[in-house]
Computed example of a mutant assay.
Amino acid sequence: MPQKRALWPMIKPYLTIFDGPLTLIVLLIFGISMVTMYSAGVGFPGRLEDHLRNILLSLLMMWIAACMPPQMLMRLAMPAYVVGVGLLVGVALFGIIKLGARRWINIGIVIQPSEIMKIAMPLMLAWFFQKRETMIRWPEFLVAGVLLIIPVVLIMRQPDLGTATLVMASGFYVIFLAGLPWKLIIGLALAGIAAMPVGWSMMHDYQRERVMTLIDPTADPLGKGFHIIQSTIAIGSGGIPGKGWMHGTQGHLQFIPERTTDFVFAVFSEEFGLIGNLVLCSLYLLLIGRGLLIAANAPTLFARLLAGALSLMFFTYAFVNMGMVSGILPVVGVPLPLMSYGGTAFVTLGLGVGILMSIQRHRKLVQS
């Protein structure tokens, strides 16, 4: 009789691809996400099942990215950027319009090309600086800035300020980590402040309304200020211990708009309170810290820049989402990472975590 092979030796090579600390942190966030979605998704048939599917898809993307060596990621950087920008141009010319925004394109399937740039942008810039590792001077930073501005402008024209912010942040982190001088950063900041009147005049009406609503949401409490007012009520009413799972009144009485997507943090805060928020924020800090540690120990400039930018991208996601739900930032449609409902964001973030795991895993292989 043929001998039966033990199960663990068969699956071990596939599971050891995952980085232990990162995997534990991500699974804990996924667990909190499922518990929160069970409560927030009441009244949305099939929402919990779809959310679980998105989590599993994210884990699959994570595993695929973790299997890819950094050398392959470098080879994909330029094609991914060119394809992404080409699709953004296609969106501008003949994209699909939904709810007044032209963000999608049909290429056999309907996709949102701006999501590609969240990963393609840091890949491209990390590749660019790797190729010029020994001669990074101001002309290289100028070229990198142009490479960053092209997709950001195309995304802002859709208009999609939230995604444009994330793409801008992911690219800027690479440029900053590559050694952008502080004098230039301060100069750019001062120039940005001076250009605010021009930027204000170029904003769409709904974008200006969001800024004014941030300043005084009570000016239109049943209209434009409704989101912020109800979310801040939910966060404050949770107190320190929270109202308890499934006992959040703002969420279950449907006062919180978009409670499974952009405003899921308000549902979580109401039910789990300050204690729950501290736990969730600690998990995000651990995730970011682990990513930055991987970046610090990466063997090449490409890997260091890419890992650092992806880690800080998670910070941007969490900070912007929590800020807008808490009423300290304008509402720009940025999901809470690994928590908010949405398949595209889960795929993008899964790829980001998988790339971090790839950099860590192949560093160990090189050392051994």
Score class of each variant (00 low, 15 high):
P181C: 08
T134M: 08
M135S: 08
V167F: 06
I155C: 04
L88E: 03
A101V: 02
F176H: 05
L166G: 11
L161I: 14
I186P: 09
K183T: 14
G192H: 08
P197H: 09
M74Q: 15
L161T: 12
M156Y: 09
A144G: 15
W104I: 08
I116Y: 03
I107W: 03
V167S: 15
E115P: 00
Q158K: 00
P139V: 07
L161D: 10
L184S: 13
G187W: 05
V82A: 13
E115T: 01
I150D: 06
I186S: 13
I136L: 03
L184N: 10
L177G: 14
G145I: 12
A92L: 02
E133M: 05
V174L: 14
I175V: 15
F128A: 07
Q112D: 11
I119C: 06
Q130G: 04
I150W: 04
S114Q: 01
D160V: 04
I105M: 02
V146Q: 02
T163D: 08
I111G: 14
G162Q: 11
F94S: 14
R102H: 09
F141E: 00
P113H: 00
G187P: 07
A178Y: 13
P79R: 04
L161C: 08
L125Q: 06
V83H: 06
L161N: 10
V83W: 05
L93H: 03
L125V: 02
M135N: 11
V91W: 01
M196A: 13
W138M: 15
R137G: 10
V89R: 00
M196V: 15
M156C: 12
I116N: 04
L99S: 12
M156H: 09
I149R: 09
V153T: 09
L76I: 10
I107Y: 02
L166V: 15
P159K: 11
L125P: 03
M78Y: 14
I105D: 02
A169Y: 03
F176R: 04
N106T: 05
Q158D: 01
W127E: 12
L93I: 11
P122N: 00
E115G: 00
M135G: 04
T165M: 14
L123V: 01
I193Q: 06
Y173N: 10
M168W: 03
P79E: 05
V174I: 14
E140H: 06
A120L: 04
L188G: 15
M196R: 06
S114E: 01
V110H: 00
M124S: 07
G95F: 00
W138I: 15
S114L: 01
Q130T: 02
I150S: 07
L99N: 13
G145H: 13
L184Q: 11
G84R: 00
G100R: 00
L93T: 05
L166W: 08
I111N: 13
F94T: 07
V85T: 13
R137T: 14
M78V: 15
A80R: 05
I185E: 08
G108S: 12
V153H: 07
Q112R: 06
R102I: 00
